[in-house]
Amino acid sequence: MNFMRKFSILFMTVAVLFCSACDFDSKADSEFFAMDTIMSITAYGSNSQSAVSAAENEINRLDKLLSVQNENSEIFKLNRDKSINASADTVTLLKRAMNFYTLTDGAFDITTEPLTRAWGFYSGLEKRVPSQNEIDNALKTVGAEHINIDNKNITLDENTSLDLGGIAKGYASAKTAQIFKENGVSSALISLGGNVRVVGSKPDGSDWSVAITDPDDNSKQVGTLAVRDTAVVTSGSYQRYFEENGHIYHHIIDTETGYPAQSGLKSVTVVSEDDTLADALSTGLFVMGLEKSSKLYSKNSALFGAVFVTDKNEIYITDNLENRFSSQHKFEVIER
């Protein structure tokens, strides 16, 4: 009797341990296409399977809401009718975009749709250098002052059109991270078309290691960042471009000139707990260039960190990333 009792207690202990072992080990991942790119999400933990499917649904929902090209999206309707009664998500995102416009002194702008269209950076269009006349016309419609938000009513000035491509993925990754947190997923890796977001630490408790692509060679890396609970977003001229008459034209348009930004940078990587900010700022800082970005950083060092690669292949990092960044190349530190 005594033996049986001891044995059954032992058996139950072992059984419980094995069950928790299964939970601990479980991993769910999904790779799918949305927002014109590949989404890849991996989550660890007992709830990971349901969390991953919930995240996938959420990303697809946001894609349908925010896509410039989907005829049923709110943004498409807004661009067509110049006025809509928008959903909460769209209003939130537009307000944040306006804030980033102010923060970056106009460098991050969501009214670039006419310019991006003129340069042919939408799928189905031919990439080309537009005439000066076309650029001048498009420039007249650009600027956040052409957007009016009144509660849920959003109106655009005539000829102004929006493109949330520089911020939608950031918003989607923030939502995904939030879904993971709500589902008790303490460890996850999200990559929305190269926008990386890590949740918690790796399952073994160590930092996630996120590599920054070398702008000159996709197969190499500039360095790696050791991070937890952070978004890491890179904007670079190497990501989308075309060549005409020996000149290279990339997809990050400067709304001052209407031409691809010539700020002396090849890529900017922004590290922040705020996904949406990281996404918007990576574009914004790229347009602003190293000097203006450093000034912005010194006032907002609590908000974000950044890694810059210049045209001369110099690497600059902000001082709050000193302990997180490692590289085999030489790099300079920007003091706040």
Binding site: S123, V196, K202, V210, T224
Partner: peptide, 24 residues
């Protein structure tokens, strides 16, 4: 992208868990 085909290494061979800015 049009045909939704991806060919990739099963393990990340660059010694990191993820890479930013790669896929566009």
């Amino acid at each position: 992208l049009p045909n939704k085909v991806v060919i990739q290494f099963e393990e990340t061979p660059y010694g990191a868990d993820a890479k930013t800015g790669a896929a566009e």
